[in-house]
């Protein structure tokens, strides 16, 4: 079985600082990969590179057999196949929820207005947001905003979803509603890569967990293996610290 997304020997530096050092990773179709590791370990940068928001210095990022990191390639047709959700939601504050969700389909996919609207309302209803369609982002709670951001990405019918610490800015009591949305997406067979600090959730949802440290994937294994008997002492130490902070 060939991978949906294949990252091969990717390197990325910001000036003298190496943020991704020879990173390789395969993501199967319908697979869910969780990236864990301390802040600054390169998780977010890896996701931004996959979505071509940052150019890589070396290596390949192959989506369905196409190297999307090829310099000179138009990024827009690739980005519309990949959904991305950010830690800080990045909703457009001057547009209603419905307008946020229909902007991409209407302008990028050139979907018919009525159809884009119907699809958006259907998605909003699926995640319990139908009564918020005409509200503005600032009128919603953090959890609701993040669910809208996920719906906005889903409205583009992406083949792959990148979720960048989507619960990190949320109140603990609001985290659950966002995690439910991700469970729902997994149930629908969405291929996903998540950067996350929610270890319990990673354990539950991931097919593969990658531990990053200083831009290197030190260890990647199915969650049952990685969380119970990690091979590397660094992984064990990281997990120990997470347990000490009460997050696992």
């Amino acid at each position: 079985m060939t991978a949906k997304l294949s990252i091969r020997n990717v390197r990325k530096s910001f000036g003298a600082k190496v943020v991704l050092d020879d990173v390789s990773l395969d993501v199967e179709e319908h697979g869910v990969v969780c990236l864990i590791g301390a802040s600054g370990s390169g998780k977010s940068t890896l996701l931004r590179c996959i979505n071509l928001l940052e150019p890589v210095d070396d290596g390949e990022i192959v989506l369905d057999g196409l190297d999307i990191s090829e310099p000179g390639l138009d990024p827009d047709p690739i980005r519309r196949r990949i959904g991305m959700v950010f830690q800080s939601y990045n909703l457009f504050p001057h547009m209603s929820v419905l307008h946020n969700v229909t902007l991409g389909p209407a302008k990028v996919l050139r979907t018919d207005k009525a159809e884009a609207r119907a699809h958006a309302l259907e998605l909003l209803a699926r995640f319990g947001l139908d009564d918020k369609a005409h509200a503005y982002p600032d009128q919603l709670s953090g959890g609701q905003q993040q669910r809208v951001a996920i719906v906005r990405a889903l409205a583009m019918r992406p083949e792959l979803m990148l979720l960048d610490e989507v619960t990190a800015a949320l109140d603990p009591v609001l985290v659950g509603e966002v995690l439910n949305v991700i469970r729902d997406m997994r149930g629908q067979g969405m291929t996903m890569i998540l950067a996350t600090h929610e270890m319990g959730f990673a354990k539950e949802i991931a097919d593969l967990v990658c531990f990053l440290k200083d831009g290197v994937i030190l260890e990647s294994a199915p969650p049952a293996k990685l969380f119970s008997s990690p091979d590397r002492p660094e992984t064990a130490e990281f997990l120990q610290r997470v347990i000490a902070s009460g997050r696992l």
Binding site: I82, F86, N90, H94, V108, A149
Partner: peptide, 28 residues
């Protein structure tokens, strides 16, 4: 910058991002 990232991640072009996301907020 995160507003541009949000728009570009949806596949909007530079010009579309300017017209639908950046300028309306800049005007206000």
């Amino acid at each position: 910058e995160s507003q541009r990232a949000g728009a570009r991640s949806l596949g909007l072009s530079h010009a579309q991002t300017m017209r639908h996301v950046v300028l309306p907020q800049a005007f206000r």
